[in-house]
Design a protein around this nucleic acid. Structure first.
Length: 104
DNA sequence: ATAGTGACTATAG
DNA sequence: GCTATAGCCACTA
């Protein structure tokens, strides 16, 4: 396991219920601001091996990146956690984005 | 080693 | 809103 991958996984695991994080944000927290794609890669390649809250990870626009049923399932999971999903799977980042610096 | 790929992001039109 | 480009980096063949 690469150190970066482990760090990314660690960050994702730390996302609290009721909050979301963007790929770029996770990459930054892992120490690699340019590694947004690796975050996505790690998510879909390791979410089944580890117990990652992959559904709490969305893109920088507050959209769900997945399409079709997968996206709907993600939206549903987020809704269950208390996050309100708007039309077209949009999420209000100003309200729900995770801020690890604070106690939250 | 090289090339292709992707649940990304930023910028441009 | 949309598509197109470019930059980015780990993984896979």
């Amino acid at each position: 396991m690469q150190e970066l991958s482990q760090r990314i996984i660690s960050v994702i695991s730390a996302i609290p219920i009721g909050k979301v994080a963007t790929y770029g944000q996770i990459a930054t927290l892992a120490g690699q601001p340019r590694a947004a794609r690796q975050v996505a890669r790690l998510l879909h390649s390791s979410s089944d091996k580890y117990d990652l809250p992959w559904h709490r990870v969305i893109n920088a626009q507050g959209h769900i990146s997945l399409s079709g049923t997968a996206g709907k399932k993600q939206a549903l999971k987020l809704r269950v956690e208390g996050i309100e999903i708007m039309a077209h799977n949009r999420i209000d980042l100003a309200v729900y984005q995770w801020k690890p610096s604070r106690d939250d």
